[in-house]
Design a protein around this nucleic acid. Structure first.
Length: 806
RNA sequence: GCGGAUAUGGCGGAAUUGGCAGACGCGCUAGAUUUAGAUUCUAGUGUCCUUGUGACGUGAAGGUUCGAAUCCUUUUAUCCGCACCA
């Protein structure tokens, strides 16, 4: 009878649960390690093989760190507000709560079947009022600090989506909703907005504090899009009370400005347009407003625009510049106005060519017939800037602008404030009351959580408001003086609950605070955070924003939440394509666990390749992983399920070197999350162990410990068979002896002109002369050296001898 | 268009500092065990040829170096992100 995964995995999962083996308790004085997974949205489809990849990596780290003496926090929870549940509710007329909780139970069962060492007493669920009480509390603190405000803004209105809802910019793809593909229109609406832009600089600068993939940092920097430049003020000729503020990163080219361009949507356009141009401007504005963003960018190779009839005065030389409108200038970026320098900006150059506007060179270099010159060079035709290069000219121009009140240094961001309201039922209600007298107030903190009304009557309101608007007994409120008001019917976006959950895990049942100061100080920050690359910007930016806000309030101890971030790669279908139902290449982890066991799945997913890379699923590879699980078992256990006689205290020394090498490599590789190479080293060790007669019990215990982070069930069972009663979870990690790795003789490579010609045993640390002499004396080497002049001999001790001949 | 990443046998991948390219696994070939299959065990497995003590070989082309998968320049392909951001 061999290894029976069904019986053994169930046995140890039960043991861990009954003994609360992984319960984490803050122990001041003991070093801690916080290993975190991005918590899942519990979809109706259940777990996907992609989920266990990241989960196994953090779990292996958690188990490894426990054995190294760390007090480990390794929690799991559910990000359970979200669209599918709401859609289900609208379709079936049931409350999404029951459906969501069912899905959570299913997910939890699936996750538990994989043997992860989570402390389930710390499970969080974003839809639990005890949890979202604190999501609402954080919103209220933002409101009190002026970082949550209502504004009439252009939003993405999707009237056919969910009975009409507003979606965030990032949820719009090619003018359609990311989910469902419904058309999106830009309309003004009153929305809750969070002032994430107030944190723009710190969100960029503090990226230097964390150990994250460079690609993610770069994406965040680009998303925030900080650009340093200048605001320059242009007076409108003949209307001296009117001023146009432009933003430029190239104030050094101000002498080369030949016209000014405004976004067609600007109010100022109507004020300055001359009567003769009114009709043309009006027509252009209408045409532009009808074009979607897509048409204004992707599809638009050709520049369009209309002259307003008005002129602006260049503050630096008094030149009269025509004012145009064009949709290549975006109202949403900067001030919606640019000074056009066609000689040194490609867009301006194209526009000037098309409308035959003057192109004035102010920098030496390039050919202005061909296109704009954007490189560096000496300035010309620029009065006090002549002879300077770009950087020096910028500084000097800024000084001039400031001294003359014509402009100043300015920083601009691409990042916009975060539209925070959704017109949905299944989200955290925004705890705000709008009174009939026009005032607005927060739901008092001691009345939180403001819970969702428990109703099956969830229908679109039809007005653009959420289904909550239909529920009169919830919406209508009266204060102690009988004053009537209406609750805000907006709910928060799904990002809200996930913007602080790692803090809640540190103290998940606290009713006085979102977490105690002691718990936060002990467990913060998260040491390792693993999740998909799709969250590189949004989740991670919002999470950092909230964390920093709480840091400023003095309620969390670190400026950044996640010290090390790793994006696991995708597991592709066996056809190298992304797994999807329509392609029929989806693998269900339940089937793998049933057939091969969780240990095999875990081992295979970690052996497939580097954690960060996307790798195709391979049934044969999975089978190979299973073979190795059995191979380890058989190494130690005989056909009668007893420990083999070969495992004893006898050590003939044959495994010394490879064992110590293995401990060294596996320890270092686990530390770097290089599980695939750690596993390959363990395979090498097992292969060697099969070749010898005596298996020292010390080494076998070391082996079982080293496989335990990856294959915990089989490791527990083997540990028990080795005669131990306690779980392997808290056993000390094996150590290695550096002296066992070195031998008296080393093999040195002898090259002639860089080509390997011999491999010679030499005494360790043989000096240069000895090594050279031995190499030259070698018979085979001589075949390549005789009759040739030896120019040089390079000796790298204990490694290589390279003989250069001619 | 801009930015980032990747490219190594039939496949997944390894090579921590510029020092034996292809560890480990899959697959394949041959043999052993087995009634047979599965399993297990042993040996072999980059390409080429004149089978050697050989030549070539890390997307392509150059370069630096005694020595390059690794460093530099150019280039191609794929993936990801952004995209008239002034």
């Amino acid at each position: 009878m061999g290894y029976d995964h069904l019986e053994i995995e169930k046995k140890w999962q039960r043991y861990w649960q009954q003994n609360k083996t992984f319960k984490a308790t803050a122990k001041p004085g003991q070093k801690k390690y916080y290993a975190l997974d991005m918590f899942p949205y519990p979809s109706g489809q259940g777990l996907h093989v992609g989920h266990p990849e990241g989960y196994t990596a953090t779990d292996a780290m958690a188990r490894f760190k426990r054995m190294q003496g760390y007090n480990v926090l390794h929690p799991m929870g559910f990000d359970a507000f979200g669209l599918p549940a709401e859609q289900y509710a609208l379709k079936t007329g049931h409350n999404p709560k029951g459906f969501t909780n069912q899905n959570i139970d299913h997910f939890r069962d699936q996750i538990q079947s994989l043997g992860f060492s989570y402390d389930w007493d710390r499970e969080v669920n974003t839809t639990d009022p005890k949890y979202y009480k604190w999501t609402q509390w954080i919103f209220e603190q933002l409101y009190k600090k002026g970082l949550a405000y209502e504004d009439e803004i252009m939003v993405n209105w999707a009237p056919d989506f969910m009975g009409g809802t507003v979606v965030a910019n990032e949820e719009v793809i090619d003018g359609k909703t990311e989910r469902g593909g419904y058309p999106v229109y830009r309309v003004p609406m009153r929305q809750w907005v969070l002032k994430i832009t107030a944190y723009a600089d710190r969100l960029i600068d503090d990226l230097d504090l964390v150990d994250w993939p460079e690609s993610v940092k770069e994406m965040q920097r680009n998303w925030i899009g900080r650009s340093v430049g200048a605001a320059v003020y242009f007076k409108v000729a003949g209307q001296e009370d009117k001023q146009i503020e432009v933003f430029t990163t190239r104030c050094d080219t101000l002498f080369g400005a030949s016209y000014v361009t405004l976004a067609p949507e600007l109010d100022l356009v109507d004020e300055i347009t001359t009567p003769e141009q009114k009709a043309a401007v009006k027509a252009y504005q209408e045409a532009a407003s009808r074009r979607s963003d897509l048409e204004r960018t992707d599809l638009n190779k050709d520049k369009t625009g209309v002259f307003t009839g008005a002129y602006a005065i260049n503050p630096v030389n008094g030149a009269k510049l025509p004012i145009w409108i064009s949709d290549y200038v975006l109202a949403s970026y900067g001030t919606g106005a640019v000074m056009a320098v066609p000689a040194h900006d490609e867009r301006d150059w194209e526009f000037a060519k098309k409308f035959d506007l003057p192109i004035k060179r102010v920098l030496v270099g390039g050919d202005l017939i061909e296109g704009a010159y954007t490189g560096d060079g000496e300035h010309v035709n620029s009065a006090f800037l002549d002879g300077l290069t770009i950087e020096a000219a910028k500084t000097k121009m800024l000084e001039w602008l400031e001294a003359n009140g014509a402009g100043q240094k300015k920083v601009n961001y691409r990042l916009r404030d975060w539209i925070f309201s959704r017109q949905r039922y299944w989200g955290e209600p925004i705890p705000v009351i709008h009174w009939d007298d026009g005032t607005t107030s927060l739901v008092p903190e001691d009345e939180l959580p403001l819970t969702l009304p428990d109703t099956d009557d969830i229908k679109p309101s039809g007005t653009g408001e959420s289904p909550l608007a239909n529920i009169e007994e919830w919406v209508n409120v009266y204060d102690e003086n009988g004053r009537h008001g209406l609750r805000d019917t907006n709910t928060m976006p799904q990002w809200a609950g996930s913007s602080w959950y790692w803090l809640r895990y540190t103290d998940p049942t606290n009713e006085q605070a979102f977490a105690s100061k002691e718990a936060l100080e002990y467990w913060s920050p998260v040491d390792l955070y693993v999740g998909g690359a799709e969250h590189a910007v949004l989740h991670l930016l919002y999470a950092r924003f909230w964390h920093k806000f709480l840091y400023d309030l003095g309620v969390v101890p670190t400026p950044e939440p996640f010290m090390k971030l790793v994006n696991q790669g995708m597991i592709l279908g066996s056809n190298h394509e992304k797994m999807s139902k329509s392609k029929g290449n989806v693998v269900n982890p339940d089937d793998i666990v049933a057939e091969y066991g969780a240990d095999t799945l875990r081992l295979y997913e970690m052996f497939m390749g580097p954690l960060e890379e996307s790798v195709p699923w391979d049934e044969k590879g999975l089978h190979g992983a299973n073979k190795w699980v059995h191979r380890v078992w058989r190494l130690l256990i005989d056909e009668n399920n007893h420990l083999r006689d070969r495992v004893s205290t006898i050590n003939d020394g044959k495994l010394d070197k490879v064992y110590h090498q293995t401990v060294k490599k596996v320890t270092a590789d686990y530390e770097r999350l290089h599980f695939n190479t750690a596993i390959s080293q363990l395979m090498v060790f097992v292969n060697e162990a099969y070749k010898v007669d005596d298996l020292p019990v010390e080494y076998m215990e070391g082996l079982v410990k080293m496989i335990s982070p990856l294959m915990p069930h089989v490791a527990e069972e083997l540990w028990q068979k080795l005669g131990h009663e306690e779980t392997i979870t808290y056993q000390a990690w094996p150590t290695y002896d550096e002296s066992k790795l070195v031998e008296a003789n080393v093999e040195m490579i002898v090259q002639v002109n860089g080509k390997v010609r011999a491999k010679l045993k030499m005494p360790k640390d043989a000096d240069q002369a000895t090594a050279e002499q031995m190499a030259l004396a070698d018979e085979h080497v001589q075949k390549f050296t005789t009759g040739k002049e030896i120019k040089k001999v390079i000796v790298i001790p204990n490694r290589i001898v390279n003989i250069v001949v001619k």
